[in-house]
Design a protein around this nucleic acid. Structure first.
Lengths: 157, 157
DNA sequence: ACCATAACCGAAAATTTATCTGAATGTTCC
DNA sequence: GGAACATTCAGATAAATTTTCGGTTATGGT
């Protein structure tokens, strides 16, 4: 599917606030309500819009501790990688896990309540996964910027 | 505001899909539509729900290259930190920036179209910021897990 | 020019959100 | 225990939104 300028603007608005009414969007985009409706449905059908999520304040729900864990595996055999990734996916403290280039193999974003819970997570969950060579963690001191909104230019991708 | 078991389940559902109707939620939670409505409004008022965002497929919009940059500052004077953070916030390729403990001072998540754009970002944007001591980048080879959904237990925080 | 397709619009129908009233429950203070 | 108050909930209704529908206007290909 090819996105035109209007689609891109629409996606920008929906990234900011997906609960806007189609009427509001129709004004912003200078289209009819139906046209907005059909464009959105198409973006959903084609998988460009993957879903709609409420964004919740993690501090307010007692999950104010954010850390990153760099992990090196013992060896890089296919089954080692496979089983490590499978286990990591199960850990709900881990919001993100990327296989990355460089000194370490994986980078994990971990969210828990506090340092004590983090210690517990490390000792009883993360480091019990097999084939982990070494880990190195850093704690977040300050959130300078934290968004999920991709910047879509108006012109073609 | 104190969250009870129902609030926590509600937040879980809304994190997964915030476009569900209150009627659907009322069935899942075994409440009236109005009760669901009022709980949601309260969660919005108190800032526990920060907003509602469409989640869009970054590959589909031509932003399939994800990298992490570790940055060390030259010195850690207050104004150095302040000006660095201010400049980073302006860069729309940077979705996240955290001041972290450990070997490096900052960890950045960067999303661009491809390696060429990344090179361009590094040369013409990131490294033009003053007071940067050294940087180290790693590229994402594979997304093992990538969610924004916090895991809320049913019991009190 | 012609056909096929896609995109758009406005109005009507279906559904949902939002408001309001009153009942049920719980808490505090005497 | 019981009165006064706040909180939570349910059901009915009003207001607003989503969704469907028929028809019109662009667009692209032959």
């Amino acid at each position: 599917m090819v996105l035109d300028r209007i689609d891109r603007r629409l996606l920008r608005y929906l990234q900011q606030d997906c609960k806007q009414t189609n009427k509001e969007l129709s004004h912003k985009l200078d289209l009819s309500v139906t046209a907005v409706y059909e464009r959105i449905k198409k973006l959903e059908r084609t998988g460009i819009i993957k879903g709609y999520e409420a964004h919740i304040n993690k501090d307010a729900v007692g999950l104010g501790f954010l850390a990153f864990c760099h992990i090196r595996l013992e060896k890089h055999a296919k089954e080692t990688i496979g089983s490590f990734e499978k286990e990591v996916r199960k850990l709900n403290e881990v919001l993100e896990c990327f296989h990355v280039s460089g000194e370490y193999d994986y980078l994990l974003k971990v969210v828990v309540k506090d340092m004590e819970h983090f210690r517990n997570f490390m000792v009883n969950k993360l480091t019990t996964i097999e084939h982990i060579g070494s880990t190195q963690s850093s704690f977040t001191i300050n959130e300078v910027k934290n968004t999920t909104q991709l910047t879509l230019s108006d012109d073609a991708s």
